[in-house]
Write a protein that binds this DNA or RNA. Structure first.
Lengths: 272, 272
DNA sequence: ACCAAACTGCGTATACCGTCAGCAGTGCGT
DNA sequence: ACGCACTGCTGACGGTATACGCAGTTTGGT
Protein backbone atom coordinates (compact mmCIF):
# COMPACT_ATOMS: atom_id res chain seq x y z
CA UNK A 1 0.00 0.00 0.00
CA UNK A 2 2.88 2.32 0.64
CA UNK A 3 4.20 1.75 -2.86
CA UNK A 4 1.11 2.31 -4.99
CA UNK A 5 0.34 5.65 -6.51
CA UNK A 6 -1.05 7.64 -3.65
CA UNK A 7 -3.42 9.66 -5.78
CA UNK A 8 -3.78 13.26 -6.80
CA UNK A 9 -3.13 16.35 -4.77
CA UNK A 10 -5.17 19.52 -4.51
CA UNK A 11 -3.91 21.85 -7.18
CA UNK A 12 -2.63 24.41 -4.74
CA UNK A 13 -0.40 21.88 -3.01
CA UNK A 14 0.84 20.68 -6.35
CA UNK A 15 1.76 24.16 -7.47
CA UNK A 16 3.40 24.66 -4.12
CA UNK A 17 5.75 21.75 -4.70
CA UNK A 18 6.23 21.66 -8.42
CA UNK A 19 6.13 25.32 -9.20
CA UNK A 20 4.89 26.57 -12.53
CA UNK A 21 6.11 24.48 -15.42
CA UNK A 22 8.20 26.87 -17.52
CA UNK A 23 6.24 26.74 -20.79
CA UNK A 24 8.38 26.42 -23.85
CA UNK A 25 6.51 28.64 -26.23
CA UNK A 26 5.15 32.12 -26.06
CA UNK A 27 6.54 35.25 -24.50
CA UNK A 28 8.80 34.98 -21.50
CA UNK A 29 6.64 35.52 -18.46
CA UNK A 30 7.40 38.88 -16.92
CA UNK A 31 5.75 37.72 -13.71
CA UNK A 32 6.13 34.70 -11.50
CA UNK A 33 4.31 33.15 -8.58
CA UNK A 34 7.33 33.87 -6.41
CA UNK A 35 7.26 37.57 -7.19
CA UNK A 36 3.52 37.69 -6.59
CA UNK A 37 3.84 36.01 -3.23
CA UNK A 38 6.74 38.29 -2.36
CA UNK A 39 4.66 41.37 -3.07
CA UNK A 40 1.74 39.95 -1.13
CA UNK A 41 3.97 39.38 1.89
CA UNK A 42 5.22 42.95 1.70
CA UNK A 43 1.65 44.22 1.67
CA UNK A 44 0.69 42.04 4.61
CA UNK A 45 3.76 43.13 6.57
CA UNK A 46 2.87 46.76 6.03
CA UNK A 47 -0.89 46.86 6.52
CA UNK A 48 -2.09 43.46 7.62
CA UNK A 49 -3.69 40.62 5.77
CA UNK A 50 -6.72 42.67 4.74
CA UNK A 51 -4.43 44.79 2.57
CA UNK A 52 -3.70 41.79 0.38
CA UNK A 53 -6.08 42.02 -2.55
CA UNK A 54 -5.47 40.94 -6.10
CA UNK A 55 -5.74 44.53 -7.26
CA UNK A 56 -3.21 45.85 -4.77
CA UNK A 57 -0.75 43.03 -5.35
CA UNK A 58 -0.97 43.65 -9.06
CA UNK A 59 -0.54 47.38 -8.70
CA UNK A 60 2.52 46.97 -6.51
CA UNK A 61 4.16 44.88 -9.21
CA UNK A 62 3.08 47.24 -11.97
CA UNK A 63 0.63 44.78 -13.47
CA UNK A 64 -3.08 44.53 -13.87
CA UNK A 65 -5.05 42.47 -11.39
CA UNK A 66 -5.89 39.88 -13.99
CA UNK A 67 -2.25 39.26 -14.80
CA UNK A 68 -1.89 37.42 -11.51
CA UNK A 69 -4.35 34.76 -12.56
CA UNK A 70 -1.88 33.35 -15.07
CA UNK A 71 0.35 32.30 -12.18
CA UNK A 72 -2.11 31.70 -9.39
CA UNK A 73 -5.41 29.90 -9.74
CA UNK A 74 -7.23 31.66 -6.98
CA UNK A 75 -6.93 34.14 -4.23
CA UNK A 76 -7.17 31.21 -1.90
CA UNK A 77 -4.21 29.64 -3.60
CA UNK A 78 -2.30 32.86 -3.23
CA UNK A 79 -2.99 32.79 0.50
CA UNK A 80 -1.77 29.22 0.66
CA UNK A 81 1.46 30.10 -1.11
CA UNK A 82 1.73 33.17 1.08
CA UNK A 83 1.38 31.20 4.26
CA UNK A 84 4.02 28.71 3.25
CA UNK A 85 6.50 31.30 2.06
CA UNK A 86 6.08 33.29 5.25
CA UNK A 87 7.24 30.34 7.30
CA UNK A 88 10.82 31.41 6.68
CA UNK A 89 13.85 29.30 7.44
CA UNK A 90 14.41 27.40 10.66
CA UNK A 91 17.59 28.31 12.53
CA UNK A 92 20.44 25.81 12.71
CA UNK A 93 20.32 23.93 15.98
CA UNK A 94 23.46 22.45 17.47
CA UNK A 95 22.85 18.73 18.06
CA UNK A 96 25.01 18.98 21.17
CA UNK A 97 22.24 20.79 23.05
CA UNK A 98 20.18 17.62 23.08
CA UNK A 99 16.71 16.95 21.77
CA UNK A 100 14.87 18.61 24.61
CA UNK A 101 16.63 21.94 24.48
CA UNK A 102 16.67 21.63 20.69
CA UNK A 103 12.90 21.31 20.46
CA UNK A 104 12.55 24.25 22.78
CA UNK A 105 14.74 26.39 20.55
CA UNK A 106 12.81 25.19 17.52
CA UNK A 107 9.48 26.12 19.07
CA UNK A 108 10.67 29.51 20.31
CA UNK A 109 12.03 30.35 16.88
CA UNK A 110 8.65 29.63 15.38
CA UNK A 111 6.89 31.77 17.94
CA UNK A 112 9.26 34.61 17.15
CA UNK A 113 8.49 34.17 13.49
CA UNK A 114 4.78 34.56 14.07
CA UNK A 115 5.37 37.58 16.30
CA UNK A 116 7.21 39.21 13.43
CA UNK A 117 4.30 38.49 11.11
CA UNK A 118 1.22 38.74 13.33
CA UNK A 119 -1.03 38.55 10.30
CA UNK A 120 -0.24 34.85 10.13
CA UNK A 121 -2.76 34.52 12.95
CA UNK A 122 -5.44 36.02 10.71
CA UNK A 123 -5.10 33.15 8.27
CA UNK A 124 -7.53 30.28 8.77
CA UNK A 125 -5.90 27.04 9.80
CA UNK A 126 -7.17 25.50 6.59
CA UNK A 127 -4.86 27.62 4.44
CA UNK A 128 -1.63 26.59 6.14
CA UNK A 129 -0.80 23.38 4.31
CA UNK A 130 2.32 21.28 4.09
CA UNK A 131 4.41 23.21 1.63
CA UNK A 132 8.19 23.26 1.28
CA UNK A 133 8.50 26.06 3.81
CA UNK A 134 6.74 24.28 6.60
CA UNK A 135 8.40 20.99 5.72
CA UNK A 136 11.79 22.62 6.11
CA UNK A 137 10.84 23.27 9.71
CA UNK A 138 9.63 19.72 10.06
CA UNK A 139 12.91 18.44 8.69
CA UNK A 140 14.77 20.45 11.28
CA UNK A 141 12.56 19.00 14.01
CA UNK A 142 13.41 15.50 12.84
CA UNK A 143 17.08 16.41 12.87
CA UNK A 144 16.70 17.45 16.47
CA UNK A 145 14.76 14.30 17.35
CA UNK A 146 17.23 12.03 15.55
CA UNK A 147 18.60 10.48 18.76
CA UNK A 148 15.07 9.68 19.93
CA UNK A 149 14.24 6.04 19.41
CA UNK A 150 10.51 6.31 18.84
CA UNK A 151 8.34 5.68 15.79
CA UNK A 152 8.15 8.28 13.06
CA UNK A 153 4.45 8.69 13.70
CA UNK A 154 5.13 9.78 17.23
CA UNK A 155 7.78 12.25 16.13
CA UNK A 156 5.22 13.69 13.75
CA UNK A 157 2.79 13.94 16.60
CA UNK A 158 5.29 15.76 18.79
CA UNK A 159 6.19 18.26 16.08
CA UNK A 160 2.51 18.84 15.41
CA UNK A 161 1.80 19.38 19.07
CA UNK A 162 4.55 21.97 19.38
CA UNK A 163 3.57 23.67 16.12
CA UNK A 164 0.04 24.00 17.37
CA UNK A 165 1.27 25.42 20.65
CA UNK A 166 3.21 28.01 18.66
CA UNK A 167 -0.06 29.45 17.42
CA UNK A 168 -1.64 29.56 20.83
CA UNK A 169 1.33 31.15 22.51
CA UNK A 170 1.88 33.66 19.71
CA UNK A 171 -1.76 34.59 19.86
CA UNK A 172 -1.61 35.30 23.57
CA UNK A 173 1.44 37.48 23.12
CA UNK A 174 0.06 39.37 20.13
CA UNK A 175 -3.17 40.02 21.95
CA UNK A 176 -1.40 41.18 25.07
CA UNK A 177 0.74 43.47 22.99
CA UNK A 178 -2.32 44.90 21.27
CA UNK A 179 -4.10 45.39 24.58
CA UNK A 180 -1.14 47.34 25.91
CA UNK A 181 -1.09 49.50 22.80
CA UNK A 182 -4.82 50.17 23.13
CA UNK A 183 -4.31 51.16 26.72
CA UNK A 184 -1.50 53.58 25.84
CA UNK A 185 -3.58 55.07 23.06
CA UNK A 186 -6.42 55.67 25.47
CA UNK A 187 -4.28 57.11 28.22
CA UNK A 188 -2.23 59.39 26.02
CA UNK A 189 -5.28 60.47 24.07
CA UNK A 190 -3.81 59.31 20.79
CA UNK A 191 -6.18 58.62 17.93
CA UNK A 192 -7.56 55.07 18.06
CA UNK A 193 -5.99 54.31 14.71
CA UNK A 194 -2.49 55.43 15.56
CA UNK A 195 -0.03 52.76 14.44
CA UNK A 196 1.89 51.07 17.22
CA UNK A 197 5.17 52.40 15.90
CA UNK A 198 4.05 55.96 16.61
CA UNK A 199 3.43 55.31 20.31
CA UNK A 200 5.89 56.04 23.06
CA UNK A 201 7.93 52.85 23.48
CA UNK A 202 8.53 53.56 27.15
CA UNK A 203 4.81 53.95 27.80
CA UNK A 204 4.20 50.75 25.88
CA UNK A 205 6.66 48.82 27.99
CA UNK A 206 5.20 50.20 31.20
CA UNK A 207 1.55 49.65 30.31
CA UNK A 208 -0.31 47.10 32.37
CA UNK A 209 -0.56 44.00 30.28
CA UNK A 210 -4.19 43.29 31.00
CA UNK A 211 -5.50 41.10 28.27
CA UNK A 212 -9.13 41.23 27.29
CA UNK A 213 -9.44 37.92 28.99
CA UNK A 214 -8.36 39.25 32.35
CA UNK A 215 -10.75 42.17 32.07
CA UNK A 216 -13.59 39.79 31.29
CA UNK A 217 -12.71 37.66 34.28
CA UNK A 218 -12.71 40.55 36.68
CA UNK A 219 -15.86 42.09 35.35
CA UNK A 220 -18.25 39.33 34.44
CA UNK A 221 -17.35 36.10 36.20
CA UNK A 222 -19.65 35.55 39.18
CA UNK A 223 -20.11 32.63 41.56
CA UNK A 224 -23.50 31.72 40.12
CA UNK A 225 -22.75 31.65 36.43
CA UNK A 226 -19.26 30.21 36.47
CA UNK A 227 -18.72 28.76 39.96
CA UNK A 228 -15.50 26.80 39.45
CA UNK A 229 -13.83 29.55 37.51
CA UNK A 230 -14.90 32.12 40.07
CA UNK A 231 -13.51 30.06 42.90
CA UNK A 232 -10.15 29.79 41.16
CA UNK A 233 -10.22 33.48 40.36
CA UNK A 234 -10.68 34.43 44.00
CA UNK A 235 -7.43 32.70 44.85
CA UNK A 236 -5.69 34.31 41.94
CA UNK A 237 -2.84 36.71 42.34
CA UNK A 238 -2.10 38.33 39.01
CA UNK A 239 1.51 38.01 38.10
CA UNK A 240 4.04 40.77 38.22
CA UNK A 241 3.77 43.49 35.58
CA UNK A 242 5.13 42.41 32.26
CA UNK A 243 4.20 38.82 32.89
CA UNK A 244 1.84 38.75 29.94
CA UNK A 245 4.74 39.01 27.56
CA UNK A 246 6.95 35.98 27.82
CA UNK A 247 10.51 37.03 27.20
CA UNK A 248 12.87 34.47 25.78
CA UNK A 249 14.58 33.74 29.11
CA UNK A 250 11.43 32.93 30.99
CA UNK A 251 9.96 29.50 31.17
CA UNK A 252 7.23 28.84 28.66
CA UNK A 253 4.79 26.74 30.63
CA UNK A 254 3.34 25.17 27.50
CA UNK A 255 6.63 24.04 26.01
CA UNK A 256 7.68 22.72 29.37
CA UNK A 257 4.55 20.65 29.83
CA UNK A 258 4.71 19.20 26.35
CA UNK A 259 8.37 18.29 26.62
CA UNK A 260 7.82 16.79 30.06
CA UNK A 261 5.10 14.72 28.47
CA UNK A 262 7.43 13.57 25.74
CA UNK A 263 9.99 12.55 28.32
CA UNK A 264 7.39 10.64 30.29
CA UNK A 265 6.27 8.89 27.12
CA UNK A 266 9.83 7.90 26.24
CA UNK A 267 10.52 6.65 29.74
CA UNK A 268 7.37 4.56 29.76
CA UNK A 269 8.22 3.19 26.35
CA UNK A 270 11.72 2.23 27.42
CA UNK A 271 10.33 0.51 30.48
CA UNK A 272 7.68 -1.55 28.69
CA UNK B 1 -3.71 46.67 40.85
CA UNK B 2 -6.16 43.85 40.81
CA UNK B 3 -8.89 46.09 42.16
CA UNK B 4 -8.62 49.13 39.96
CA UNK B 5 -10.75 49.60 36.90
CA UNK B 6 -9.10 47.39 34.35
CA UNK B 7 -10.02 49.54 31.38
CA UNK B 8 -12.27 49.29 28.38
CA UNK B 9 -13.00 46.29 26.26
CA UNK B 10 -13.22 46.01 22.50
CA UNK B 11 -16.83 46.67 21.60
CA UNK B 12 -17.41 43.19 20.25
CA UNK B 13 -16.39 41.59 23.52
CA UNK B 14 -18.58 43.99 25.41
CA UNK B 15 -21.61 43.19 23.29
CA UNK B 16 -20.79 39.54 23.72
CA UNK B 17 -21.06 39.80 27.49
CA UNK B 18 -23.63 42.51 28.02
CA UNK B 19 -25.93 41.85 25.12
CA UNK B 20 -27.91 44.63 23.50
CA UNK B 21 -29.47 47.03 25.99
CA UNK B 22 -33.24 46.72 25.40
CA UNK B 23 -34.10 50.30 24.40
CA UNK B 24 -37.22 51.63 26.07
CA UNK B 25 -38.71 53.68 23.29
CA UNK B 26 -39.58 53.04 19.72
CA UNK B 27 -40.93 49.93 18.03
CA UNK B 28 -40.20 46.54 19.53
CA UNK B 29 -37.22 45.14 17.69
CA UNK B 30 -38.34 42.33 15.43
CA UNK B 31 -34.78 41.11 15.24
CA UNK B 32 -32.11 40.26 17.79
CA UNK B 33 -28.43 39.49 17.79
CA UNK B 34 -29.25 35.98 18.94
CA UNK B 35 -31.52 35.32 15.99
CA UNK B 36 -28.95 36.76 13.61
CA UNK B 37 -26.21 34.56 14.99
CA UNK B 38 -28.53 31.58 14.88
CA UNK B 39 -29.26 32.13 11.21
CA UNK B 40 -25.59 32.63 10.47
CA UNK B 41 -24.77 29.34 12.14
CA UNK B 42 -27.41 27.58 10.07
CA UNK B 43 -25.90 29.00 6.90
CA UNK B 44 -22.41 27.97 7.92
CA UNK B 45 -23.59 24.47 8.81
CA UNK B 46 -25.19 24.09 5.42
CA UNK B 47 -22.67 25.63 3.05
CA UNK B 48 -19.56 26.56 4.98
CA UNK B 49 -18.32 29.82 6.34
CA UNK B 50 -18.17 31.47 2.93
CA UNK B 51 -21.96 31.25 2.74
CA UNK B 52 -22.28 33.62 5.67
CA UNK B 53 -22.79 37.06 4.17
CA UNK B 54 -24.84 39.90 5.55
CA UNK B 55 -27.17 39.67 2.58
CA UNK B 56 -27.79 35.95 2.96
CA UNK B 57 -28.24 36.11 6.72
CA UNK B 58 -30.75 38.91 6.26
CA UNK B 59 -32.63 37.08 3.55
CA UNK B 60 -32.90 33.93 5.63
CA UNK B 61 -34.54 35.91 8.40
CA UNK B 62 -36.79 37.76 5.98
CA UNK B 63 -35.05 41.09 6.51
CA UNK B 64 -32.94 43.42 4.49
CA UNK B 65 -29.17 43.22 4.81
CA UNK B 66 -28.98 46.59 6.53
CA UNK B 67 -31.40 45.55 9.23
CA UNK B 68 -28.63 43.48 10.78
CA UNK B 69 -26.51 46.52 11.43
CA UNK B 70 -28.90 47.67 14.15
CA UNK B 71 -27.87 44.65 16.21
CA UNK B 72 -24.34 43.98 15.06
CA UNK B 73 -21.68 46.62 14.50
CA UNK B 74 -19.73 44.79 11.88
CA UNK B 75 -19.43 41.61 9.97
CA UNK B 76 -16.35 40.95 12.01
CA UNK B 77 -18.40 41.28 15.16
CA UNK B 78 -20.92 38.87 13.73
CA UNK B 79 -18.14 36.35 13.20
CA UNK B 80 -16.99 36.85 16.76
CA UNK B 81 -20.48 36.25 18.11
CA UNK B 82 -20.82 33.32 15.74
CA UNK B 83 -17.64 31.71 16.94
CA UNK B 84 -18.60 32.01 20.57
CA UNK B 85 -22.14 30.76 20.08
CA UNK B 86 -20.90 27.78 18.09
CA UNK B 87 -18.85 26.61 21.05
CA UNK B 88 -21.93 24.89 22.42
CA UNK B 89 -22.24 23.48 25.89
CA UNK B 90 -19.64 21.34 27.59
CA UNK B 91 -20.86 17.94 28.74
CA UNK B 92 -21.20 17.22 32.44
CA UNK B 93 -18.15 15.37 33.70
CA UNK B 94 -18.37 13.10 36.72
CA UNK B 95 -15.76 14.24 39.26
CA UNK B 96 -15.26 10.61 40.22
CA UNK B 97 -13.35 9.92 37.01
CA UNK B 98 -10.50 12.06 38.25
CA UNK B 99 -8.88 15.09 36.72
CA UNK B 100 -6.85 13.23 34.15
CA UNK B 101 -9.68 11.28 32.60
CA UNK B 102 -11.87 14.33 33.05
CA UNK B 103 -9.59 16.55 31.00
CA UNK B 104 -9.44 13.86 28.37
CA UNK B 105 -13.22 13.77 28.11
CA UNK B 106 -13.30 17.55 28.04
CA UNK B 107 -10.82 17.70 25.19
CA UNK B 108 -12.48 14.94 23.19
CA UNK B 109 -15.84 16.65 23.51
CA UNK B 110 -14.37 19.81 22.08
CA UNK B 111 -12.79 17.94 19.20
CA UNK B 112 -16.15 16.35 18.44
CA UNK B 113 -17.72 19.78 18.49
CA UNK B 114 -15.31 21.08 15.89
CA UNK B 115 -15.81 17.98 13.77
CA UNK B 116 -19.53 18.73 13.71
CA UNK B 117 -18.83 22.30 12.63
CA UNK B 118 -15.71 22.04 10.47
CA UNK B 119 -16.13 25.64 9.39
CA UNK B 120 -14.85 26.66 12.80
CA UNK B 121 -11.42 25.86 11.38
CA UNK B 122 -11.96 28.45 8.66
CA UNK B 123 -12.20 31.19 11.25
CA UNK B 124 -8.99 33.04 11.99
CA UNK B 125 -7.71 32.55 15.52
CA UNK B 126 -8.17 36.25 16.09
CA UNK B 127 -11.96 36.02 15.92
CA UNK B 128 -12.34 33.40 18.61
CA UNK B 129 -12.36 35.53 21.76
CA UNK B 130 -13.32 34.83 25.32
CA UNK B 131 -17.07 35.02 25.20
CA UNK B 132 -19.58 33.34 27.49
CA UNK B 133 -19.63 30.21 25.36
CA UNK B 134 -15.93 29.56 25.55
CA UNK B 135 -15.81 30.56 29.19
CA UNK B 136 -18.45 27.93 29.97
CA UNK B 137 -15.97 25.37 28.71
CA UNK B 138 -13.22 26.95 30.74
CA UNK B 139 -15.39 26.80 33.84
CA UNK B 140 -15.94 23.11 33.28
CA UNK B 141 -12.19 22.61 32.93
CA UNK B 142 -11.65 24.31 36.26
CA UNK B 143 -14.30 22.11 37.79
CA UNK B 144 -12.38 19.09 36.57
CA UNK B 145 -9.08 20.49 37.83
CA UNK B 146 -10.52 21.44 41.20
CA UNK B 147 -8.57 18.77 43.13
CA UNK B 148 -5.33 19.92 41.53
CA UNK B 149 -3.29 22.02 43.92
CA UNK B 150 -1.55 24.27 41.43
CA UNK B 151 -1.81 28.00 40.74
CA UNK B 152 -4.68 29.34 38.71
CA UNK B 153 -2.25 30.57 36.09
CA UNK B 154 -1.05 27.06 35.48
CA UNK B 155 -4.58 25.72 35.21
CA UNK B 156 -5.24 28.40 32.62
CA UNK B 157 -2.13 27.30 30.78
CA UNK B 158 -3.22 23.68 30.79
CA UNK B 159 -6.68 24.48 29.51
CA UNK B 160 -5.17 26.67 26.81
CA UNK B 161 -2.76 23.97 25.79
CA UNK B 162 -5.54 21.43 25.42
CA UNK B 163 -7.82 23.88 23.64
CA UNK B 164 -5.08 24.58 21.16
CA UNK B 165 -4.54 20.89 20.65
CA UNK B 166 -8.24 20.57 19.88
CA UNK B 167 -7.76 22.70 16.79
CA UNK B 168 -4.75 20.77 15.58
CA UNK B 169 -6.33 17.39 16.07
CA UNK B 170 -9.64 18.44 14.56
CA UNK B 171 -7.81 19.85 11.61
CA UNK B 172 -6.00 16.61 10.95
CA UNK B 173 -9.22 14.65 11.12
CA UNK B 174 -11.18 17.05 8.94
CA UNK B 175 -8.44 17.03 6.36
CA UNK B 176 -8.21 13.26 6.39
CA UNK B 177 -11.95 13.01 6.00
CA UNK B 178 -11.89 15.43 3.08
CA UNK B 179 -9.05 13.54 1.44
CA UNK B 180 -11.01 10.31 1.68
CA UNK B 181 -14.04 12.01 0.16
CA UNK B 182 -11.92 13.38 -2.69
CA UNK B 183 -10.56 9.94 -3.31
CA UNK B 184 -14.03 8.38 -3.44
CA UNK B 185 -15.23 11.10 -5.76
CA UNK B 186 -12.34 10.42 -8.09
CA UNK B 187 -12.70 6.65 -8.03
CA UNK B 188 -16.45 6.58 -8.49
CA UNK B 189 -16.35 9.26 -11.13
CA UNK B 190 -18.65 11.53 -9.14
CA UNK B 191 -18.61 15.22 -9.92
CA UNK B 192 -15.88 17.05 -7.99
CA UNK B 193 -18.47 19.19 -6.27
CA UNK B 194 -20.66 16.35 -5.04
CA UNK B 195 -21.46 16.91 -1.36
CA UNK B 196 -20.04 14.34 1.00
CA UNK B 197 -23.52 13.26 2.04
CA UNK B 198 -24.23 12.00 -1.49
CA UNK B 199 -21.27 9.65 -1.53
CA UNK B 200 -21.45 5.98 -0.70
CA UNK B 201 -20.78 5.72 3.04
CA UNK B 202 -19.27 2.28 2.68
CA UNK B 203 -16.82 3.50 0.05
CA UNK B 204 -16.00 6.44 2.28
CA UNK B 205 -15.21 4.21 5.21
CA UNK B 206 -13.08 1.94 3.06
CA UNK B 207 -11.14 4.68 1.31
CA UNK B 208 -7.46 4.88 2.05
CA UNK B 209 -6.98 7.72 4.47
CA UNK B 210 -3.99 9.21 2.75
CA UNK B 211 -3.76 12.78 3.80
CA UNK B 212 -2.25 15.38 1.53
CA UNK B 213 0.68 15.35 3.87
CA UNK B 214 1.41 11.69 3.32
CA UNK B 215 1.18 12.10 -0.42
CA UNK B 216 3.62 14.98 -0.26
CA UNK B 217 6.01 12.92 1.82
CA UNK B 218 6.01 10.02 -0.59
CA UNK B 219 6.30 12.14 -3.66
CA UNK B 220 8.61 15.03 -2.93
CA UNK B 221 10.80 14.29 0.08
CA UNK B 222 14.29 13.32 -1.06
CA UNK B 223 17.51 12.68 0.82
CA UNK B 224 19.14 15.86 -0.46
CA UNK B 225 16.45 18.39 0.23
CA UNK B 226 15.10 17.10 3.53
CA UNK B 227 17.66 14.60 4.82
CA UNK B 228 16.41 14.07 8.36
CA UNK B 229 12.82 13.79 7.32
CA UNK B 230 13.73 11.41 4.52
CA UNK B 231 15.67 9.20 6.86
CA UNK B 232 12.73 8.97 9.22
CA UNK B 233 10.38 8.34 6.33
CA UNK B 234 12.41 5.36 5.13
CA UNK B 235 11.85 3.68 8.47
CA UNK B 236 8.19 4.52 8.38
CA UNK B 237 5.51 1.91 8.24
CA UNK B 238 2.17 3.57 7.57
CA UNK B 239 -0.39 2.57 10.13
CA UNK B 240 -3.25 0.24 9.53
CA UNK B 241 -6.09 1.50 7.30
CA UNK B 242 -8.37 3.87 9.10
CA UNK B 243 -5.58 5.13 11.29
CA UNK B 244 -5.97 8.65 10.01
CA UNK B 245 -9.31 8.95 11.74
CA UNK B 246 -8.91 8.66 15.47
CA UNK B 247 -12.01 7.02 16.87
CA UNK B 248 -13.00 7.84 20.39
CA UNK B 249 -11.65 4.58 21.84
CA UNK B 250 -8.17 4.95 20.46
CA UNK B 251 -5.41 6.74 22.24
CA UNK B 252 -4.94 10.34 21.22
CA UNK B 253 -1.20 10.76 21.29
CA UNK B 254 -1.43 14.50 21.78
CA UNK B 255 -3.77 14.40 24.75
CA UNK B 256 -1.67 11.70 26.31
CA UNK B 257 1.56 13.64 25.98
CA UNK B 258 0.05 16.81 27.38
CA UNK B 259 -1.54 15.06 30.33
CA UNK B 260 1.68 13.16 31.02
CA UNK B 261 3.40 16.52 31.04
CA UNK B 262 0.89 17.89 33.51
CA UNK B 263 1.45 14.91 35.77
CA UNK B 264 5.20 15.34 35.60
CA UNK B 265 4.82 19.01 36.43
CA UNK B 266 2.63 18.24 39.44
CA UNK B 267 4.99 15.58 40.68
CA UNK B 268 7.99 17.88 40.38
CA UNK B 269 6.04 20.61 42.15
CA UNK B 270 5.10 18.34 45.02
CA UNK B 271 8.69 17.23 45.36
CA UNK B 272 10.24 20.68 45.44
C1' DA C 1 11.43 31.80 -43.86
C1' DC C 2 7.09 31.14 -42.60
C1' DC C 3 2.94 29.88 -40.18
C1' DA C 4 0.31 27.95 -36.58
C1' DA C 5 0.28 26.91 -31.99
C1' DA C 6 1.08 28.23 -27.48
C1' DC C 7 1.50 31.38 -24.19
C1' DT C 8 1.40 36.03 -21.94
C1' DG C 9 -0.76 40.15 -20.04
C1' DC C 10 -4.77 43.05 -20.08
C1' DG C 11 -9.57 45.41 -20.79
C1' DT C 12 -14.10 44.60 -20.12
C1' DA C 13 -17.87 43.06 -17.63
C1' DT C 14 -20.44 40.70 -13.98
C1' DA C 15 -21.99 39.56 -9.66
C1' DC C 16 -21.22 40.01 -5.27
C1' DC C 17 -19.61 42.07 -1.09
C1' DG C 18 -19.73 45.23 3.21
C1' DT C 19 -21.38 49.46 4.65
C1' DC C 20 -22.56 54.82 4.76
C1' DA C 21 -26.43 58.15 4.61
C1' DG C 22 -30.80 59.30 4.86
C1' DC C 23 -35.93 58.20 5.12
C1' DA C 24 -40.47 56.60 6.70
C1' DG C 25 -42.89 54.44 10.10
C1' DT C 26 -43.71 53.08 15.07
C1' DG C 27 -44.66 53.39 19.78
C1' DC C 28 -43.18 54.96 24.54
C1' DG C 29 -42.62 58.98 27.79
C1' DT C 30 -44.23 63.08 28.87
C1' DA D 1 -51.21 64.74 21.76
C1' DC D 2 -46.76 65.77 20.84
C1' DG D 3 -41.97 64.69 20.21
C1' DC D 4 -38.34 61.81 20.36
C1' DA D 5 -36.04 57.59 20.22
C1' DC D 6 -35.79 53.71 17.81
C1' DT D 7 -36.83 50.55 14.18
C1' DG D 8 -36.05 48.49 9.43
C1' DC D 9 -35.36 49.78 4.70
C1' DT D 10 -34.00 51.97 0.18
C1' DG D 11 -30.41 53.58 -2.61
C1' DA D 12 -25.85 54.25 -3.61
C1' DC D 13 -20.86 53.69 -3.52
C1' DG D 14 -16.53 51.69 -3.65
C1' DG D 15 -14.35 47.54 -3.32
C1' DT D 16 -13.87 42.57 -4.18
C1' DA D 17 -12.87 38.23 -6.98
C1' DT D 18 -12.89 36.52 -11.37
C1' DA D 19 -15.01 34.65 -16.20
C1' DC D 20 -14.25 35.79 -20.99
C1' DG D 21 -12.05 37.07 -24.91
C1' DC D 22 -8.65 39.82 -27.44
C1' DA D 23 -4.03 41.42 -28.94
C1' DG D 24 0.55 40.72 -28.91
C1' DT D 25 4.78 37.75 -28.59
C1' DT D 26 7.65 33.94 -28.88
C1' DT D 27 8.73 29.32 -30.53
C1' DG D 28 8.69 24.67 -33.00
C1' DG D 29 7.79 22.54 -36.98
C1' DT D 30 7.86 22.59 -41.68
Amino acid sequence: MSTENPGALPTSLQRLWEGTTPGRRGPKPALSAERIVEAAIELADEDGLAAVSMARVGKRLGFSPMALYRHVRDKEELLVLLSDAAAGDPPPIDPAVGWRRGLEIWTRAQIDGVLERPWLLELPLSSTPFGPGRVRWLDRAFEVMRPLDIPTDDKLGIAGLLAQHVLGEARVQVESRRAAADRVRRETGAAPGTPESDLDPAALAAADPYTDFEIVLQRYIGPDTYPSLFEAMSAWEPEAPGAGVTTSDEIDFGIMVILDGVEAYIARRRRG
